[in-house]
Design a protein around this nucleic acid. Sequence first.
DNA 1: AAAATAAACAACCGCCGTGAG
DNA 2: GCTCACGGCGGTTGTTTATTT
Length: 340
Amino acid sequence: MVRPPCCDKDGVKKGPWTPEEDLVLVSYVQEHGPGNWRAVPTRTGLMRCSKSCRLRWTNYLRPGIKRGNFTDQEEKLIVHLQALLGNRWAAIASYLPERTDNDIKNYWNTHLKRKLQGGGGGGDGDGGAAGDAVYSKPAAQRPASSSKGQWERRLQTDIDMARRALREALTSLDDKPHQPDAAAGGGGATTGAAASAGTGTGAGADSPAASSTSGASQCSPSSAGYVLTTENISRMLDGWARKKGGGGGRRAAGSGPATPGVTESASGSSEASEVSYGGTALSAAAAPASAFEYETKPTVAAAGDAGDETQLSAIESWLFADADGIESGSLLDAAMDYTF
DNA sequence: AAAATAAACAACCGCCGTGAG
DNA sequence: GCTCACGGCGGTTGTTTATTT
C-alpha cells in the first residue's frame, strides 16, 4: 500500500522560511513545546508540512544550537566519530550537543571530506571515498533489530566506540596547544556551550530518545541543551533585521546564513543583547525568557568562551573514566548516569 | 565591472522504526 | 497481530554568497 505523503503537496509552501513563519513556529513551540508536529501546520496556519516545521525547529530555531565555525576539537571529534560510526550523523551529533546532525553532515560534506581527501590518504579513515568505503558498514551499523537487549548492546557498542574516538581525538589534541580558533574565533561561536546535557550523556548514540534532535530530549527540563531563548530569539531577530535591512550578506557576519541565528552575532555574550528589528531597538530581554519553561539555561553557557574547554574536559572525564576500569558490562549504566 | 565557478548551507525527499489504536 | 500515522534519519538538491578569472 502506498503511504500518503506526510502532507498534501498542494498548498504546502516550500523553500526558505520567512521570518514571519519562524516567529509563528517559535511562538507555537513556546506555548506547546516541541512535538506533535502534525498539528503544527493546522494549529498555526503555517502552510508548511509538519516535517518541515520539525526540521526548521530542530536545525535552526531550537535554542542552544551553535552554528558555524567548528573548532579544531569539534572537527577532530567529528572525523574520528565518523570513522567509527560511519555516516550516522545523529549519533555523532549526540556527542556534540550544540550541533545538529544536519550541520555536522553539511560540515563533513563541504569541509572535512574534501579536507581529508586532499590531505592524502592515510590517517583517519582517509575520508571521503575511502573512509566511506571502509566504514560504510561500521560495526555499529544496526541491523534492523529492535529488541531492547539488542538495542542496548548496540548502544553500548556505540558508546564504546565513541569513547575510543574521543580518546584518540583528545589525545592527539594534547599534542598541540589548545587553540580553539573558534573559541575566539568563532567570535563567540562557542557561546552557550551547553555542556551538555541530556544528550550529553553520550548514551544517546543512536538512541531514539537521546538523539540530539529528539523532540523528547528537547523537552526534558533537565536538558541543558537549550540555551535559551532570549539569546536565540535575539539572534533570530538580529538576523532578520539584517536580512530585512537588505544587508543581505548571508555570510556577512562570518558564517551566518540567512539564518538569523548565527551565533557569531553579538551573542558572544549571554547577556540579552539589543538588536534592531524593523528599525526599533528591542531588547532581547524583553523576549519571553520564561516562555520555554521546559528549557533550562545551562550554567556553562555563562562561561562564555570557556565553553568548549568546559565541555571537553567534561567529556574527557567521562572518557577516561573508562580507563579507570569501568567494566564494559556497566558501561551503559555509567554512561547513563554520567552527568556533565 | 561582469561573468563564471566554487563553496556553504538550508531545506526537501524518501525510507525506516516505533507506538498507538 | 496488524495497520497506520508520526517522527527520526541520512542522502540529495537548490539557493545564495564569495571568490576567481
